[in-house]
Amino acid sequence: MHYHNYEDLLENNQEWAAEKLEQDPTYFEKLSQGQKPPFLFIGCSDSRMPLNNFTKTEPGELFIHRNVANQVSLTDMNLLSVLEYAVEALNVQHVVVCGHYFCGGVAAAYKGNATGVVESWVNPIREIYLQNRVEIDAIEKEEDRVNKLAELNVIAQVRNICNTSVMHRAFKTGSYPKLHGWVLDIRNGKIKELELPTDEWRELGIIP
């Protein structure tokens, strides 16, 4: 893999801006007039997860929040602000939690070897592992066990979104975004859409 140095980034930016203007002289003028993205993406901070690349989307199409192992914590003011703004001001139509296979945060939670702040941050994933230990431990290869945990983590975080005050308000109005759980397989660049247990969630009153 070719890594850029610091100066490359600034040069690349100049080239990119010039290319955009060549294609459309009003590109930045339009971009500066505001945003109306239909999607909120909650993804992992991993450097291999540039969501715009994987979905071939342009600036202005995705509203994005990223953190280690794509967590939706009900006490995270940063995430809650992003969610509230996306749902109530931008009126996004879709909220996607996107995890990925071979996630370092998920692997650390599975092995129980995270330390410091990261240990506290990934502790909810450790709990997901312990709750589903029988199912996960029955999988033969360790990397497949970690990847299964990555999927269960995404589903748990979508469920957490349903439990936010933001979504509770949206559910009451009857106008709310569709929720999706994705896992990116970085071995082939493809997105896997996970099946969410919506019937079960309805029965529990988590979603309307």
Rank of each mutant, 00 (worst) to 15 (best):
M1Q: 08
Y3P: 08
Y3I: 13
H4R: 15
N5R: 13
E11G: 02
E11K: 15
N12M: 13
N12A: 11
N12P: 08
N12G: 01
N12Y: 12
L21H: 02
P25H: 09
T26C: 00
T26R: 09
F28V: 13
E29Q: 13
S32Q: 14
S32P: 10
S32M: 11
G34N: 14
K36N: 10
L40P: 07
F41W: 14
I42G: 14
I42F: 12
G43K: 02
S45M: 06
R48N: 05
N53Q: 04
N53T: 13
T57V: 09
T57P: 02
G60T: 13
F63N: 08
F63L: 11
R66P: 05
N67F: 08
N67Q: 07
V68S: 02
Q71Y: 06
V72G: 01
S73I: 06
S73T: 06
T75Y: 06
D76Y: 05
N78E: 10
L79T: 15
L80D: 03
S81H: 00
V82S: 07
V82M: 03
L83I: 12
Y85C: 03
A86Y: 00
L90N: 03
Q93I: 03
Q93N: 11
V95A: 01
V95I: 15
F102D: 15
A107L: 03
G112N: 04
T115W: 01
T115K: 06
G116M: 04
V117T: 06
V117I: 15
V118I: 15
V122F: 08
R126E: 12
I128A: 12
Q131T: 05
N132M: 04
R133L: 11
E135C: 05
E135Y: 06
I136R: 05
I136M: 07
D137K: 05
A138S: 15
E142Q: 14
K148F: 14
I155E: 07
A156S: 13
A156D: 09
Q157F: 12
R159H: 11
C162T: 15
S165K: 14
S165I: 10
M167F: 13
R169L: 07
A170H: 01
A170I: 12
K172M: 08
T173F: 07
G174A: 10
G174T: 12
S175C: 11
Y176D: 04
Y176A: 11
Y176T: 01
Y176V: 07
P177N: 03
P177K: 09
H180G: 09
H180N: 12
H180K: 11
G181A: 03
L184K: 01
I186F: 09
I186N: 12
N188M: 10
K190W: 10
K190D: 09
K192S: 12
L196Q: 03
P197A: 02
P197D: 05
T198A: 07
P208Y: 01
